[in-house]
Design a protein around this nucleic acid. Sequence first.
DNA 1: GTCTATACACCGATAGAC
DNA 2: GTCTATCGGTGTATAGAC
Lengths: 181, 181
Amino acid sequence: MSKDTAIPQLLTVFRQYGYEGATLAKLSEATGLGKASLYHHFPKGKEEMAASVLDYLNQGLQENILAPLHSDRPPVDRIRAMNKNVDAFYHQGEQACLLALLSVGEAHDLFQSQIQQALDLWIDSLSQVAIEAGVNPKTAHQRAEDAVLQIQGALVLARGLNNTAIFKRVLKRLPEMLLSA
Amino acid sequence: MSKDTAIPQLLTVFRQYGYEGATLAKLSEATGLGKASLYHHFPKGKEEMAASVLDYLNQGLQENILAPLHSDRPPVDRIRAMNKNVDAFYHQGEQACLLALLSVGEAHDLFQSQIQQALDLWIDSLSQVAIEAGVNPKTAHQRAEDAVLQIQGALVLARGLNNTAIFKRVLKRLPEMLLSA
DNA sequence: GTCTATACACCGATAGAC
DNA sequence: GTCTATCGGTGTATAGAC
């Protein structure tokens, strides 16, 4: 069990329990590493684990979400490609967004800049696609904010209503919502 | 300091720190009551405090959000009346939604039915207004889900981006979004 | 009904053997 | 690099005086 293989498993714990709820016992069990071993890989402890998970997440955002948006295919295809990966990443709406969870409580102060940066990147990339599809820049930016907003809202409602249908509906209408004239 | 006056202050702690992050020390400080006094009012401890806060919240939902929706004024005025109270309740987007926070981790298992019930009530009331405005029932229900979804998403983004402008924009367009032909 | 004092488990974190 | 054992601190929860 190396550091790189541990991080995805740390992620699953953080996004199920949040920052305060993700205890070292849970993190240890999920990774199969003892607490002391976790401290070998992450000397600053839980805070460093969460920061590393956020870095890993940011990398996944770049590769699976943003890269498809910057391809040379038609705008609608790029949004669809993103959708496919978003759907997979959030497990069809069953899994929460770590960026939202780490905006709460003590974690908010620790990770706000990382979170803001990730959200801004996502919004800017979406906005760029809409602009290339002929939407005027100001409208494009608002639509891009709206797209991320609706994904986040859908994840909240999916958990609160115990029903992922809303998440699927949101993804389905994203291309039209972002690109329509 | 009675039980009823303590609950609003417990609410502020829970919705700032979440369930696991809301420690008895914080709850004690916020209410001005010692831990033992909190246990006098809430014998089952933190879980009962959160449940009572949820009940209080549900009552506020009924009085400040749902009641205006069921008035005999024109539909657009009812939505506007709701907006005004939603804006105040979430402090113009600065404060998180407890229903969303308690959908995470251990709290999810404890409070899911209360949360689902509150969200369903809100959605149904919004849907009813749209139906009375002439929107067909199926569309009305989807728009009502969308309205709550966008409020929740806006709250997530407001914290993540440290910017409440999005929340204000969402509220502003709600009447049109819900009621347009 | 509120307090001080305390019980006991678990928290994050570390020491040190291997 | 992983483990067992343990530290000090804090978590939830209680006892009992006032």
